[in-house]
């Protein structure tokens, strides 16, 4: 649809928010308003800033759809009640996503869930001959990700989908930096076996 838009306008579309999270400074300003004046509008804005990101991560963690909202709201319950206690030793995003990650692990333990790949993903349904290359890549990607242990899957999601640094991923997952590197190393090796088309390799490079 033809449309001339104002130059240099900063647009934060929900769908694009995933790869371009808001700056830590702007998020901290929101948290400050929540802590000091119980600002509902600031809380709502912060919630909106994380809703899509967390939904995506929790889906990738194989948290049941009906549990995702509960995990997100439990996380933001903590944000609302502990806003005044956040001391800023870490980035706000690593604090919030870290809370959600631990809540999600608890939810998975409670539900004793198996990964959705075991019962929902049919490898035979993939059509390598599909004329829609992107769609096929997406199918292969889903297959590959679902084969990964949840810790590796999260390291990959946090790095590639949300664009976090190695140190930030370590803070979120509450593990050493070298552990993050190892998880991603293993995830890459596994994906190579599943994603030869997407990765453009035959699996014999490493």
């Amino acid at each position: 649809m033809p449309l001339k838009i104002v130059e240099n306008q900063s647009i934060e579309n929900p769908a694009l928010r995933l790869a371009t999270p808001p700056s830590d400074a702007s998020e901290r300003a929101l948290l400050d308003r929540i802590a000091k004046s119980q600002d509902q509008a600031a809380f709502r804005t912060l919630y909106g800033s994380y809703y899509q990101r967390l939904s995506r991560l929790l889906t990738r963690m194989s948290v049941r759809r009906e549990d995702i909202e509960e995990v997100i709201n439990d996380t933001f319950w903590v944000v609302w009640t502990k806003a005044g206690e956040f001391r800023g030793a870490s980035q706000l995003s690593t604090w919030i996503i870290g809370i959600a990650y631990r809540r999600a692990l608890n939810a998975l333990r409670r539900a004793k869930l198996r990964p959705v790949a075991d019962h929902e993903f049919d490898e035979d349904s993939i059509s390598v001959e599909s004329s829609e290359e992107d769609e096929t890549n997406q199918q292969w990607l889903s297959l590959g990700l679902e084969r990964l242990p949840v810790e590796q899957r999260m390291a990959l999601e946090l790095t590639y989908t949300l664009g976090h640094s190695c140190e930030e991923v370590a803070a979120i997952l509450d593990c050493p930096v070298n552990t993050v590197k190892t998880r991603l190393f293993r995830a890459r090796e596994t994906l190579k076996q599943v994603l030869p088309r997407l990765a453009g390799m035959s699996g014999d490079h490493a």
Binding site: R56, Q138, L156, Y160, T161, L198, H205, A206
Partner: peptide, 25 residues
């Protein structure tokens, strides 16, 4: 070669993520 491959994986994951959450909004 590995860097190019990982960039493709990252791009695909971001594309997947950008398309996936429409209903969640």
């Amino acid at each position: 070669t590995e860097l190019a491959a990982q960039k493709r994986v990252a791009t695909q994951m971001q594309r997947d993520a950008a398309e996936a959450p429409a209903s969640a909004a």
